[in-house]
Each structure stands twice: as structure tokens, then as C-alpha cells.
Amino acid sequence: MHSRQRLAEKITRDAMSTVRQYQLFDNVVPGFALVIYKSGTKAFNVSYRFNDRQRRYTIGQLPAWSVVAARERAKAIRREIEMEYDPLGNCEAERVVPRISDLIDRYIDEHLPKLAARNRSDQSSMLTKLVLPQWRNRLVREMAAGCYRPAKKLLRRSAPCPTPIRANRLGEILRKMFNLAVQWKLRSDNPAQGFHKRPENARECFMPLPCNHSARSPET
């Protein structure tokens, strides 16, 4: 049986690593403990049961987390569990939610092979060089409707003076990609549906860059 004591800064600081990892359990918050790994790394966690499954939620490592802060986080986690909410299960679910990088990969793998070689190369280049750097980690389902804005400054990898022809091309690609996202049931609507072509004056320098707004953020 694990011995329990009130974890304090001195106890966590003095805990030494051994040939096997072990835990020091707190006697204030059930399941709250400090784990000491063989490497010497120390981290706070909370052990609990949810739906007859034993779970362990890692709060964070020393010294980034103090005992006091980690204990308060552990209390909050216990309250969530009492409300029948599994914090670890929610984290696992978030990891499998598709992001824009996943959508671009699927678009390139499944849709672009159907196109002519030059068209395929052009679309792949625009998505990976212009869109991916800005939207890589954004969730597909949280992209806001009409998330485009004109910008004079271009991304580093874009051409020095792109024309509205290229801007229109990018808009059409994004509209098609999000149409497929709807077909693939990654979201219920197309946030690029309202895109309209600009007059194509070849001498004008312009590029609509994907903005950084999501459905949770107000548009500017």
C-alpha cells in the first residue's frame, strides 16, 4: 500500500530517483501524487477511476508546477470527475479531431490525383506554402465562415507581387477543399462558400491570405 503524506515543496525537491520509478501520494487530495522517474524527472498527476477504468492524468512537471498550483489543479480535476466528466478522455478525443493539416493531406492524397499534373502541382504548392503555415493546427470544424481578408503583405514563401488571378485561384482551391470536408463529414458547412472572384487586373498586386480567426473568435 502506498504511504501518504501532505506533499510540500521540500518533500518534492528532496525526492531522489531510484532504479525504478515511484510515486509519493498526497493525503489531502485523493489520487494526487508526485511521480519520480528513473531519469530524475518529476511530475504531478492524479489517479482516478472512470467508468470502471483506471486513469492517470498528468498535470505537469517540476519545477514548472509548484505543489500548491498542482494540488489546486488536482482538486479541479476531482470536481470534474464528480460531475461525471472524464478530463483525460476529453484530451484523447481532442487529439483525434481533424486539423487543417489533416484536411490538406487528405485533399492532396485523394482529390489531386484526379487532376492534370500541372493543376495538381499548382494546387499542392499553394496549399503547402500559403495555407499550411497559417492554419496547420487549427481544427477543421472551427474555421469561421468567410475567413478571408485582403492583405498587402504576403507570406514569406509567396511570390513578390502576386496578382488577383492567383488570389482567385487560392480562393477556389479552398472552397473546393472545404466542400470535400463537408462530404467527408469533417464539418457541416463550407466556410469558404461565400468566396467570390475579384476582377483580374494582371498589374495589380494582391493576395487574400487566410485569416487567423476561428469560429470561437470574433471576426475583425
Rank of each mutant, 00 (worst) to 15 (best):
R99W: 07
E92T: 11
Y107P: 03
A33S: 12
A69I: 10
V29Y: 02
V35C: 09
Y48A: 10
I36K: 04
L112I: 02
K75G: 08
E72S: 12
I108W: 04
L103M: 07
L62N: 11
Y37E: 15
N45W: 00
W65R: 08
G89C: 03
W65H: 11
V28W: 00
V97K: 13
E72W: 00
N27K: 03
V96W: 06
Q21K: 12
D52I: 05
S66Q: 08
L88F: 05
V97T: 13
V68Y: 06
S47H: 07
R53C: 04
K75W: 08
A93I: 13
D86V: 09
K38N: 10
E110R: 09
L62S: 11
N90H: 09
E82D: 15
Q21G: 12
N90Y: 10
Y37F: 12
Y48M: 06
F50V: 07
E92G: 02
P98D: 14
D86G: 01
I59L: 03
R106A: 08
E82L: 11
A93L: 12
L34H: 03
R55C: 10
V67D: 03
E72M: 06
Q54M: 06
K75M: 12
L103P: 02
Y22S: 02
V97H: 07
T58C: 10
R95F: 01
R78C: 05
I77F: 07
K42Q: 11
H111D: 15
F25T: 10
P113E: 11
L112V: 05
G40I: 12
Y85I: 15
V46Y: 03
A76S: 14
N90D: 15
